[in-house]
Computed example of a mutant assay.
Amino acid sequence: MTRSTAMDEAAENGAEAYDVVVVGGGAAGLSGALALSRARRSVLVIDSGEPRNAPSDGVHVYLGREGTPPAELMADGRAEIRRYGAQLRTGRVVSAERDGTGFRLTLADASVVRARRLLVTSGLVDELPDVPGLAELWGKDVLHCPYCHGWEVRDRRIGVLATGPLAVHQALLWRQWSDDVTLFLHTAPEPDDESYEQLAARGVAVVDGKVDELVAAEGRLTGVRLASGEEFGVSALAVATRMSARADWLAPLGLDLADQAVQGTVVGRHIPTDPTGRTDVPGVWAAGNVAEVSAQVIVSAAAGVRAGAAINADLVTEDTRQAVAARRAGRPLGD
């Protein structure tokens, strides 16, 4: 392995320095770290321990790992990257700044690490509708993705809480898993005549009025209560959250979030990247939900591998440039 001049200088100053620091230890981050550590790069993964899918019973549509508890999948991933020399640290990055051609990261405990490249996989935060009782059931009976949870609630009474223009599409999608689906208009715009016809044709009931609270018994959803006091029985409720990337700490580098839209409707904020995960800031890549808010776990993992390979290729180019410069200057570049 070839060390960079910047890495050598950082080591001489007593600083922790790595080829790549991965911020976020979910599927994207661990997959990227696996690709990089197998490429014999020095890698540190910093994870705050706040996985988005923590309330979920299992990871779904992940070939070969279907139904695996999220914590188990992450534990296996951490063990795998350690096998190839990657390091892990529990912590939260609070700021990032340029440090020569690399980066200087400060954690919440005031410790500092340096990196030649950054892979941002810090995920996102779901902003839930403000309905009493909803947050307590999030990830259990209150769900967002039919591909992640539809099979588990198949043939049950499913409600869809409408909060925006995509509500009709959402209700028609959930209809694939149950013939007992009710769309609660709540705060969403009134559907047009064509939408009403589509809902009626698929047997989706429509209930007008704002949902005032969720009703539960023994920790499980049993219904929704409208502001009028009328109650409707459901055992699963689909909601559309607003999803915002955890990336405020990147602002000093000039990396700003952008709106991400689905069918013309903004559903969240993300870090824009090219197909490899490269951002507009040289040396910074992003993968997973921080870059694609609707990505499922297996998609995030694949994006992490792709970004890891791209980062290694970028470092190879830099290592080669430094080696050529050293050769021309008549000095060997240390291995």
Rank of each mutant, 00 (worst) to 15 (best):
L161A: 12
V131K: 12
L30M: 07
N312G: 10
G32P: 02
A251D: 10
G64P: 12
G229L: 05
E9R: 14
A286G: 02
L253C: 04
V324G: 14
S122K: 09
T182V: 13
G164C: 06
R116G: 10
D126E: 11
M74N: 09
S195F: 06
E197V: 11
A217I: 01
T265A: 13
A171Q: 03
L63Y: 06
S31A: 10
V215Q: 13
T317R: 14
E231F: 07
S4P: 00
T320P: 01
T2D: 05
G203R: 02
R41E: 02
E230A: 15
L143D: 03
T222S: 13
P69Y: 14
R175S: 11
V125H: 15
V234H: 06
D212H: 14
L333V: 10
L161Y: 02
G203D: 02
E136W: 01
L185K: 07
R52I: 00
P332M: 02
I298E: 12
A33S: 11
A217K: 12
L185E: 06
A286H: 05
V266M: 03
E318P: 00
L172H: 09
A54L: 06
Q322R: 14
A10L: 11
E231C: 14
D76Q: 14
G223K: 13
V234A: 10
D141K: 14
P70Y: 08
V181M: 08
A307T: 00
A326C: 07
L128C: 04
I158P: 13
A329K: 15
P51F: 04
G102H: 02
V267N: 09
D274S: 01
G25Q: 08
A10S: 13
A205M: 04
V142F: 08
P70Q: 10
G164E: 12
L172T: 06
A216W: 03
L134V: 08
L172E: 06
I271D: 03
T121Y: 08
A247K: 01
G268R: 09
W177D: 05
A167E: 01
E66T: 05
M74P: 04
A323V: 05
G24Y: 10
R327K: 15
S42M: 06
G223P: 08
L315I: 14
L221K: 05
Y84F: 15
R92V: 03
G26V: 00
S42A: 07
Q260G: 02
V316M: 07
L257A: 11
Q263P: 00
E231A: 14
G203A: 06
D256H: 10
A35P: 04
A261H: 01
A227R: 11
R117W: 05
Q176E: 12
A35H: 03
A329S: 15
T320K: 06
A245E: 05
D76W: 08
A258R: 10
A313T: 11
Y62G: 10
D99L: 02
G229P: 08
V21P: 07
T101V: 13
R98I: 00
T68M: 15
L73M: 15
S42C: 01
E80R: 07
D99S: 03
R114P: 02
D274H: 04
R246M: 07
G67P: 13
G25C: 07
E194Q: 12
T187H: 02
G58T: 00
L250F: 00
A39I: 04
V153R: 08
